[in-house]
């Protein structure tokens, strides 16, 4: 399978099943488009280039095909089935440390942090039992991830400290290493929390939606007040105190700010270096939910953002955009690429009272409760359903050029919109495809700049 597209002056050709990515000239781009439809002589009558140009390009395309870098077949379906039958271990837990929040974000999937239940804070006992469960179910794996999530984790930060302290004790006893992370809305962040996080947290996610009017419209306090002016100075100091590493300034965009590239640029102008801006996932009847008709503008915004990223990189003031980060020369193996995010098997969410769910997005949906941290998994059939979920169990993924980068999309979104984790949520898919195209274009631009720089140096010598 080959996917071709033009973006920002680059002709890009993805050989989907080998992972090879080529930047080609116009004649080769057109030859590739016809390569499986007609022969060389036929091409000469259909294309407007000189016969010599077409022959030369055709020869290079043939060579790429021979080297396994173009028109490669997908031979992975049986392999992935075999991989999925292997025993897995639990690698990561999402601890819902607080089902309570001091904000009342309009788009919150957790319903003001309460997940369809009552306000609740995780106890130290449940937190410790969760880490015990993780260690006991992680096999020989050394690195374990634990994310403090909510609601708002700083409403229960004393217990966060106790759990981290307990984790450090377990590390010595069991030859494990915990990577702790947490997400915060910033209202209660203070010097003590920053100092503790900088010492103990591998990553901190700071929730901020961009421009003040955008942020305040969607993220008021429980009392209806604005939050932007309270959190911004704290987040800037927090990011600075982490040397602008191992954090994300993370926002949500909705159909009320479809010009979201401006929010990303706003955050970059403020000085944030690690930025994520993610599309809201809301039910169709919500006024802020993204609709099919919004996609052209969203695609345009991603294009604007990609070009801005290239420009700032060239000017020596780069920033990272989470959804444009892509590793073309390393990256994970094909088994990882095609087998999904790990929810329900390698990744589980823990409620404040210790119940286990396939991921944070399923918490509160009783039919997905798979057990608890005190007694372990008691609904293995649900975990098996998630285990078997992969790009080859989703009809739409089989024909999608982005499947080796996206891994099949979000099971929770599929379930919310189709009642089936083996479905796909089409709006998300379309945005993911666009982001992959932009991310690869950025790599093409960076490669061209490196080449130009090298050529310049050679000329000077």
């Amino acid at each position: 399978m080959v996917h071709q597209y033009k973006n920002n002056g680059y002709n890009i050709v993805m050989d989907v099943c080998s992972g090879a990515i080529h930047v080609v000239d116009d004649v080769t781009y057109d030859v590739i488009a016809l390569f499986e439809k007609c022969d060389l002589e036929d091409m000469k009558t259909k294309l407007t280039y000189t016969p010599a140009e077409i022959e030369e390009a055709y020869g290079e395309v043939e060579e790429l095909k021979k080297e396994g870098l173009l028109f490669t077949e997908d031979n992975y379906e049986d392999y992935i089935q075999e991989v999925k039958e292997r025993k897995t271990v639990v690698k990561a837990l999402c601890l819902h440390i607080a089902h309570d929040c001091n904000l009342a974000c309009r788009y919150c999937f957790a319903g003001e942090g309460e997940y369809k239940g009552d306000r609740s804070l995780m106890s130290e006992e449940v937190g410790k039992a969760a880490l015990d469960f993780l260690v006991a179910n992680s096999g020989n794996r050394h690195n374990l991830e634990v994310d403090f999530f909510g609601g708002e984790p700083t409403l229960n930060f004393g217990v966060v400290r106790k759990i981290v302290e307990y984790g450090r004790e377990l590390e010595k006893m069991h030859d494990k290493h915990f990577r702790f992370t947490f997400t915060t809305n910033g209202l209660l962040v203070n010097d003590e929390i920053m100092e503790f996080s900088n010492r103990e947290m591998d990553n901190v996610v700071m929730s901020i939606d961009g421009r003040k009017e955008v942020h305040d419209r969607m993220r008021p306090t429980r009392g209806g007040k604005n939050s932007y002016d309270v959190i911004l100075p704290k987040f800037l100091r927090f990011a600075q105190s982490r040397n602008h590493q191992r954090y994300y300034a993370r926002g949500t965009f909705t159909r009320e700010n479809l010009d979201f590239s401006q929010d990303v640029i706003h955050l970059a102008d403020l000085g944030f270096k690690q930025i994520s801006m993610e599309p809201v996932v809301g039910l169709p009847e919500e006024p802020y939910s993204i609709r099919e008709e919004d996609l052209p503008q969203i695609f345009h915004e991603y294009d604007l953002l990609a070009r801005e990223l290239i420009r700032r990189n060239r000017e020596g003031r780069p920033f990272q955009f989470f959804h444009f980060m892509i590793d073309l020369t390393g990256g994970p193996c094909v088994a990882k690429r095609l087998s999904g995010c790990g929810s329900g098997t390698e990744y589980l969410a823990v409620t404040p009272w210790g119940d286990l769910y396939p991921c944070h997005q399923f918490v509160g949906e009783d039919e997905f409760k798979v057990g608890d941290v005190f007694h372990g998994i008691n609904k293995p059939e649900i975990c098996d359903e998630f285990r078997n979920c992969n790009v080859y169990t989703k009809e739409k993924c089989k024909e999608c050029f982005a499947r080796f980068y996206c891994s099949g999309g979000c099971a929770a979104n599929a379930w919310k919109f189709h009642g089936n984790i083996n479905e796909t949520y089409d709006l998300s898919c379309q945005m993911e495809r666009k982001r992959v195209e932009c991310a690869i274009m950025i790599k093409a631009a960076m490669a061209e700049e490196r080449e130009n720089m090298n050529n310049g140096e050679e000329t000077q010598q």
């Binding site: 790429l64 892509i326 994970p332 193996c333 891994s407």
Partner: peptide, 18 residues
């Protein structure tokens, strides 16, 4: 190649073995 530049058991993750 004159006409082609090749840039190359989720897209950003590095294998722990790597």
């Amino acid at each position: 190649m004159k006409h082609v530049k090749t840039l190359t058991g989720v897209g950003n993750q590095t294998c722990e073995n790597e």
